[in-house]
Design a binder for these strands. Sequence first.
DNA 1: GGAGTTTTCTATCAGGCTGATACTGTACCC
DNA 2: GGGTACAGTATCAGCCTGATAGAAAACTCC
Lengths: 401, 401
Amino acid sequence: MSGRTSSTANAETVSRVNQTAILDALRQHGPLSRQEIGARTGLSAATVNRLAGHLLRKGLIVTDGHQPSTGGRPSILLRYSGRAHLVSVLHVGATRTEGALVDFDGSIVHRVQRPVVPDVLHAADRATIRLEEALSVVTELGAAAGGRGQPSQAIGVAVPGVAGADGRVTWAPALDWREVPVGSLLSERTGLPVVVENDANVLAVGEHHRGAGRGVQDLVAVVLGTGIGTGIVTGGRLHRGSRAAAGEIGYMLLDRSSLARLFPGFGDLESRVGSAGLTRQARERGIAAPDGRPLTAADVFDLVRSGSVEARALLEETLDYVALAVANLCTVLDPELVIVGGEMGGAADLITPGLRDRLVGRVPHVPRLAASELGDDAVIIGAAELAARLVSDSAYVAATR
Amino acid sequence: MSGRTSSTANAETVSRVNQTAILDALRQHGPLSRQEIGARTGLSAATVNRLAGHLLRKGLIVTDGHQPSTGGRPSILLRYSGRAHLVSVLHVGATRTEGALVDFDGSIVHRVQRPVVPDVLHAADRATIRLEEALSVVTELGAAAGGRGQPSQAIGVAVPGVAGADGRVTWAPALDWREVPVGSLLSERTGLPVVVENDANVLAVGEHHRGAGRGVQDLVAVVLGTGIGTGIVTGGRLHRGSRAAAGEIGYMLLDRSSLARLFPGFGDLESRVGSAGLTRQARERGIAAPDGRPLTAADVFDLVRSGSVEARALLEETLDYVALAVANLCTVLDPELVIVGGEMGGAADLITPGLRDRLVGRVPHVPRLAASELGDDAVIIGAAELAARLVSDSAYVAATR
DNA sequence: GGAGTTTTCTATCAGGCTGATACTGTACCC
DNA sequence: GGGTACAGTATCAGCCTGATAGAAAACTCC
């Protein structure tokens, strides 16, 4: 039951930690001279020089010109260079499969998009179709990376559902995936390390690392799309929960009467603000969806912008419930920042003011509210970050010459 | 704004980490021989021996007899001994001030209790009175520790309110403390490191470390007393939030109509299940408090046990709201375990079954529910643990002979 | 009771890493 | 062109780990 929980250290550990410190300094503050790295990390000049040498040989950092002299020998700037390393990313969404090659800088260097044919959306065997498509996209990405002479080093997969730490997708309703071992399928096929994660969680990671949440240690990303979900970062780390179900606020209970009902396949909040709930309520209020398909939050925003009074009322009610959920999130977690993302991100101007008004005076501490900075790419970039972490921890030490 | 976030390592770090690994192994598995420690930690025999020597000299471990020989030289058992080190703990509660000397094993070796004189409870200067009392208790504890020849090495303070990371109590209504710098007052007076923390948070730490939550990485402790609060442990660490307000679920909003009201000094949930709310509702239902004072949850439990039908109905309603809050906690955090503590802890038999019934089918994953194991001492033991951590990180390396 | 066996504990040494010191290299200024 | 100021590099002591060999302690067998 135990025995290897305690972790020990040796000289190699020291070197790895210090190399990581140098890389972190360069990632956070852009190009720095060796002296500046020393000042920032507290490492001696000799150590910085030696470790920088290792990192240069490994291609993780590059020289980036000189700094103007201040009277003496000008310093050589060192810059983190993720360009030398690529990861493959897969975002299996409800209506399309998206693939990308992303370098360690977070730049997307190659994209693949596969819209889902409408007939497939509700086909009986859509689970298999979507899975095979996902595998083929990864293969295509691998080939593209090979063609660039920079083989992909890891794979990150984002899915709209619950994913265990072992890379198994427990339940993703939009894909009809149950207990699908995506992680092991991909790692067996490619031999690469794979991380599989919920899409809201990776969005939070993406915004935390390279978007609106840079430098923030405690944040929540709220994603409103077909359903509603959140990604939670506490203490700078993704919070997954004991069963990887943390942040599934679609199940939040918002009324005492909710205790009289059960919520087996969908949640209380989700039934109110999700696509199905919106469609139902719109029908009751006489609002027609643009072309007869189920209404999404994005449609409601469009209608509001075009002046619909009924849609405005529906938006306000939706906002009420979203605000209750966000208020409770804030009460429980006390985040520094709440990021509004997903389809909502583009309508942040309609959302954040109303949200703030509803929070003020009702929660102990109203956090900063911000729109997603990365938009549609947040998921891709977040998944790339998680994939990069899979290799970077060991890559720093591997091949140390 | 930045500059020293990155942490570096050196040879000393390695030694400290490995000493901590040895201590953790001994704490987790009881007495072990040097060989067993080596097997468990992966350290070489020579290293284990040398580090064990350091720890023996520092008094953090002691020899504990021999193991029966298996044919050769019998091994000497080593045992963690927190007895050699003491911390002072202060629990400033609503109705009493409690002090204790606790050793690093978590054993309480000395207690001080100071009930609050009823006249003081609502006196205009009760803030000052309680503060001076707190300081005097700490002085008394210091003297007691000195008398044992084992001076106290740190101070842990638990308060029913919000405490910043700097040891300042921002707001503790039950004490009428606002912006009281307890931490700096105590550290100036004693020269010892001080940690000040919310009582629900330290209760969670106590149960996590030595109570119902041993070995659990994600747990929530729900404390129902005069108000309602929670302590949250995620990934094995206390989650405080960006403004130390995490877990203040008294402010959770449980109805859309709550958005029509403001909650400046008290919260929505707290007004329903806290002492004031219970008293009001009891009056409406014709339930009399035993002796005319405000009704607490504990009183309701007593009335239920004595067969009161009205109290039973009130309990059920209270449970409904507590269940809503716990359900939302579970949805957001997905903890492995929820511990019911505080005054509720003794009535766990009345609470947990009803709570479980209300959660099943309504949250994605129903956690384990358990009563507090440490009872009234959970706060003391948790605060002692936090205080011990203040010194242990540096104590391992200090005085390494 | 003594020698051999087995296992534990300890001493010694090589190797890796950091940090201090001294030294070399490069550009600017007078 | 020499002096100055700062950046980068080589050398070495100190600390820590881990490997190896040796000393110590208890048991077994004759």
